[in-house]
């Protein structure tokens, strides 16, 4: 393998810091595009993280661990889906309750697994490609979930804007009554979207407990679910911008740590504010053009749908 330069190492750090946000935000983007606002990302990530860790530790299989993380996220999201889509419960409150529930569930499940180490999710071994100077380790030396997170941006973009199903999903999010009157099953489509969001949040959690910091400790998400939610808004519901947002947020976070290491004379707390302030600033710049933003915000986001026929 080619010698890795410091710049590459820093970029690698940024990539791994951004990936959990990217995974969870991509899922939430699809959910919101279908008109549902699920604020329970943090809870789904936690349950995904603990499940992936437990399964990996007990079976020794990375693949099963990843699948378990996704599956756990799906189960959590189905709970949310049933509440909000069948029992028409308020989405914002249900999402927050889901997070409380997820914190509790993950803490219970994880009790026997605290303090046990596992190996880090290995990088996919791509022969030859990994030896390419500079780009090699950066592009071809990553683990499965990192590739998957970027791939899903492409897939979700293609799905939403290039397929008929994606068009239907967006139509449902834009106006559920109209979509319903044409004959689409609003509830079914939204439920599937919510499940997809759960799977992606679960994978975001799995990335935390298998790759980013391979361990289980309670509440290890430390608020990343909330940042993922903010990134969907930041992205104005466009997949490509989620990628930009996640990497921007990750970069500024890492940058402020480096600035401290370099001895910049600013209070650490002020530097810690940078990722949030930069994100706000960039969104302000993006959304100055009112017309463009309005076009992409799903019209029925957060509204309860009940077929009146």
């Amino acid at each position: 393998m080619a010698a890795i330069t410091t710049i590459e190492l820093v970029l690698l750090t940024v990539i791994s810091a951004a990936t959990p946000l990217l995974l969870a935000a991509t899922g939430e983007l699809v959910v919101e595009r279908s008109g549902v606002l699920n604020l329970g990302v943090e809870g789904m990530m936690l349950v995904g993280a603990v499940s992936a860790f437990i399964v990996m530790l007990t079976t020794g299989s990375w693949a099963l661990g990843i699948v378990a993380g996704a599956a756990a996220g799906v189960i959590m999201s189905m709970l949310f889906g049933v509440l909000t889509l069948f029992f028409l419960a308020n989405q914002v409150a249900s999402g927050l309750a889901l997070t409380l529930f997820g914190i509790g569930v993950s803490s219970l499940l994880g009790i026997p697994f605290i303090g046990l180490p596992i190996d880090k999710l290995p990088a996919l071994d791509l022969p030859l490609l990994g030896d390419i100077p500079i780009l090699g380790p950066l592009i071809f030396g990553q683990d499965f979930l990192i590739y998957f997170s970027v791939l899903m941006i492409v897939v979700v973009h293609w799905f939403l804007f290039r397929t008929r199903s994606g068009l239907i999903l967006r139509a449902v999010g834009e106006s559920h009554d109209a979509a319903h009157s044409i004959g689409y099953s609003v509830i079914k489509i939204r439920f599937l979207a919510v499940m997809f969001g759960g799977a992606m949040a679960g994978l975001g959690g799995a990335f935390l407990s298998l790759s980013y910091t391979p361990m289980w400790v309670e509440q290890m998400t430390a608020g990343r679910g909330w940042i993922a939610l903010a990134l969907v808004v930041f992205a104005t519901w466009k997949p490509g911008r989620v990628l930009i947002g996640a990497y921007l947020f990750g970069s500024v976070t890492i940058l402020q740590l480096h600035l401290q290491g370099l001895g910049v004379q600013l209070p650490a707390q002020i530097l810690s504010m940078l990722p949030y302030l930069v994100t706000i600033l960039v969104l302000v710049l993006i959304s100055r053009n009112a017309a463009r933003v309005k076009l992409s915000a799903p019209g029925c986001l957060g509204q309860i749908f009940h077929p009146h026929s």
Binding site: V10, A17, G223, R224, I254, L257, Q260, A268
Partner: peptide, 17 residues
């Protein structure tokens, strides 16, 4: 300074930095 007692991700990132 990571301004937290407990955030495995951020602690790890600080270590890398």
């Amino acid at each position: 300074w990571v301004s937290t007692w407990f955030d495995p991700g951020k602690e790890g990132d600080a270590a890398k930095a």
